[in-house]
Design a protein around this nucleic acid. Structure first.
Lengths: 189, 189, 189, 189
DNA sequence: ACATACGGGACGCCCCGTTTAT
DNA sequence: ATAAACGGGGCGTCCCGTATGT
């Protein structure tokens, strides 16, 4: 059970994140998180005022990890078009991993349908940010219709996450980079 | 409430489906379904032995609706490649509708993460069937790599559903048909 | 554990009363009552909207039992003065019983100190009612100062309950009837 | 807050005692005592190894105060019978005071029902001591049945405390001295 | 000596899916 | 068909006693 290392807040966030990702937000109770992280319940509620706040904190952490994934993917690549390809390839690679169970933000958008729920807003903000990053690269690459390409690559990426969830590691996501290459190439002036 | 008409079973299924789709499976309780459908609880349990069975019955109905949507989209079209385009266009059109809240099977795969859960299996079966249909058309169209194209269009379709959920009616899904066209055209021999 | 007999409400009330009386109100939790009475928690909360309400219901039952005790004590006695003596004797007898752990209303007045708490008010109402009964009898007996005698017998009775709690079955309460006789006799005109 | 003066131990004991008396033992938490007495929690636990020990220390202090009350009441009175009367009068006077919320030992006997709990034992010891003092005076006064009189005056005293708790400052306790006088006079040889 | 945090446990109230009685 | 019952779980709060840092 209790991973003995790290500050309690980190242990809580890590355990909660793992359980949320594996079982879903509603299916994981506070008591389970407390038991698995080897922490007192009051400690959890001192660091996170509610379960919703814990979910949001988890989503923020995931957002940072996705950004880091993209950063790492474009590391050392100069051409913006190549960076777009690298990002799509990185997503496809991760989506074909057994550990990948889909996208935490798709989960949060589904499990918290209310548009005013913080977890739902976090999902929207994340997806907007991802599309914004694709759009910026498409613009830098001087492609013909950056908005459209950002849309299309967004669809492929979200399709890859969704496919990973449903199909597991052997999913259509493997064919995603080829599609991305084609869509990018088609927009070269 | 909405005690409109039809056999009790149909009323239950319709009410449950609407609520499931709007709020999620876990968020909708048996009592709510019973109250909204104006049926006694025992009647519900006589038609559906458990909530899981009700969810599965709902998913089967949705599966039929999606098949009907595809059937209608390809109606009167001879060319398999055109049929593929038509299917993608139909999905994009529906996904840009305010009533569309995403894909019920993506929902079930996320809310019932256990691979052995009937609702999860139903999601996998549905997604496999959709891809199978795309694959068959791609093969009929004598495209170069039907498997890959089926993958790629699957990704676009699932991406469109996911985007509809997160972004609402003004989502990247609008750019999906153009991407589909490109991917299909690229595989023409 | 579960006493199998009686309606659930009765089982709950009886179990809760026994535990309250033996251990105190604060020391007995809802879960303990539920477990000991073999009832679902929801069942308890359907019959009693809160723990406070359950306490009050228990106190009302005790109030009825005390009234029944007094009724039985005066049964077949005509003289009001004799009835006063009989009541005091009955209290002394019960207070010298091993099952007697004092007065539930003294408990509730102590454990719920807020004057506006229902359990506190119930205690005050009960004690007022007892004194009122004594006063009525003293007036019927045409004693010299019925108010004073009602006070004095009230003190003896409450003293007997308190002594039973602290001393157990062998308490000063045994000497209560003699004191009551004296106080009554002294007021005979 | 009331960080008036005195050694920390005294401040803790005084604050805890006041809160215990006003709200009850279970209703007052360590944190409240710490906050109200302006002391660090570790300081409290260095002076009192546990909350129970703090309760017992408080009870010992109250015991001393009651003894002092009795000592002051009998000051300058020679006749043992008069001393008995004076003690009862002092109790009745205090019990009719707005500050009086009853007897701390009745409280402890009720809130700690276990016969082996130190606070319960302290209550028994105190009540025995009070009765012992009454008995000694009754014996010195050469009354006919000192044991019985000690019992009866004990009942009146405990009844007065209990009445003060339930009824407030205008309670039957006001009629207690008259009853005590009568009971004492009746035993004069 | 202060202040803050922690682990462990209990608790109050509430909701859910399901079965049984009426 | 109404209504109650049942076991299980969930969230947020509180408390006690100890262990930290300063």
């Amino acid at each position: 059970m209790g991973t003995a290392a790290g500050t309690p807040r980190a242990r809580i966030l890590e355990t909660a994140g793992r359980l949320f990702y594996e079982r879903g937000y509603h299916a994981v109770g506070i008591d389970t998180i407390v038991a698995e992280s080897g922490v007192a319940k009051m400690t959890l509620y001192r660091h996170f005022p509610s379960k919703d706040a814990l979910v949001v904190a988890y989503l923020e952490r995931v957002n940072g990890q996705i950004e880091a994934l993209f950063d790492a993917a474009v590391q050392g690549i100069d051409s913006p078009a190549e960076q777009l390809r690298a990002i799509c390839a990185a997503v496809a690679r991760l989506a074909s991993t057994p550990q990948c169970l889909g996208c935490a933000f798709q989960m949060s958008a589904l499990e918290f349908p209310g548009r005013d729920h913080p977890a739902n807003q976090a999902a929207l903000a994340h997806k907007r940010a991802v599309r914004g990053r694709l759009l910026a690269l498409a613009q830098q690459a001087r492609l013909r219709d950056p908005e459209q390409l950002a849309d299309q690559l967004s669809l492929l990426i979200d399709g890859a996450w969704a496919a990973a969830r449903v199909f597991g590691p052997h999913s259509p996501a493997a064919s995603m980079p080829a599609a991305a290459d084609l869509l990018i190439a088609a927009q070269q002036p």
